[in-house]
């Protein structure tokens, strides 16, 4: 097995007294899609947010262990958190475009990350194309993002992440608030993005995991129970808990 692109080594995390993640060890392979599944409250979103240090500013959070992007320790003192977040993009559960125009939504990220002005337009157009949004919005780039549909807003959020050319994209249940058609579109988009990016996606939707993920990680009560290729997890799970979860016996 080759070196994972992104990995967690011995990650434990507490919200106050409550331990939410327990000694997590996992690696995500480059240019593959990995799904994190498990019942609500099992810590999958919390784990995902560890990788771009989204817990930094949350009061009462304590974290031990290491996360690595390639060989670099994400939590090392010398690391500038904004630089990590540029390399590890994130798409959230609820589409959260800024209160700006479609164009500005993407331009903002490029601007704050110091991309030269003459390169930005090209990147914006390209990221919109990669997010399957270009055809729908090319004539109204300066319309408020708020006027887009939910699915379009989520694709805009993906475009915003993609425009920065990150190495990894973290997705936290990106389709949970969308209708089946928009979901299908985003799934296709995710599969397309795999060619260039390492993708980790949290999902509640077992079919979705099977449709798009190369690998699947099953979590339960803050621990990783099993991690394997998606077919193995869904058909030949070695752990009793995993197989009863994926067959819908609890959840």
């Amino acid at each position: 097995m080759q070196q994972p692109k992104l990995s967690a080594r011995g990650i434990s995390l507490w919200f106050g007294e409550k331990q939410v993640l327990k000694d997590i060890d996992i690696g995500f392979q480059d240019r593959q899609i990995t799904a994190l599944i498990g019942p609500s409250g099992c810590g999958k979103s919390t784990l995902l947010r560890c990788f771009n240090r989204m817990h930094d500013r949350t009061p009462g959070v304590r974290l031990s262990g290491h996360c690595y992007l390639d060989q670099e320790d994400i939590y090392a003192k010398s690391v500038f958190v904004a630089a990590i977040r540029r390399r590890i993009g994130m798409v959230f559960q609820k589409a959260n475009p800024f209160a700006k125009s479609i164009y500005e939504n993407i331009n903002y990220g490029l601007k704050i990350n110091g991309v030269q002005e003459n390169q930005r337009h090209e990147l914006i157009v390209q990221s919109l194309k990669e997010s399957f949004l270009w055809d729908e919005v090319q004539h109204e780039l300066h319309k408020p993002a708020a006027q887009l549909s939910g699915g379009q807003q989520q694709r805009l959020c993906i475009a915003r992440a993609v425009a920065l050319r990150p190495e990894v994209i973290l997705m936290d249940e990106p389709c949970s608030a969308l209708d089946p058609l928009s979901t299908a579109k985003i799934e296709e988009l995710i599969k397309n993005l795999k060619a260039d990016y390492t993708i980790v996606i949290v999902t509640h939707n077992m079919q979705q995991a099977q449709r798009i993920a190369d690998n699947t990680v099953f979590m339960y009560m803050g621990r990783i129970i099993e991690a394997d290729t998606t077919p193995n997890i869904f058909n030949n799970a070695t752990n009793e808990l995993t197989s009863s979860y994926v067959h819908g016996k609890f959840g």
């Binding site: 904004a82 977040r85 959260n96 475009p97 800024f98 903002y108 990220g109 704050i112 959020c157 915003r160």
Partner: peptide, 15 residues
């Protein structure tokens, strides 16, 4: 302003 706005901004590397 919902926290999700701010997270989106932090998420792309904003201070």
């Amino acid at each position: 302003i919902p926290i999700s706005y701010k997270e989106a901004s932090f998420g792309i590397g904003a201070s």
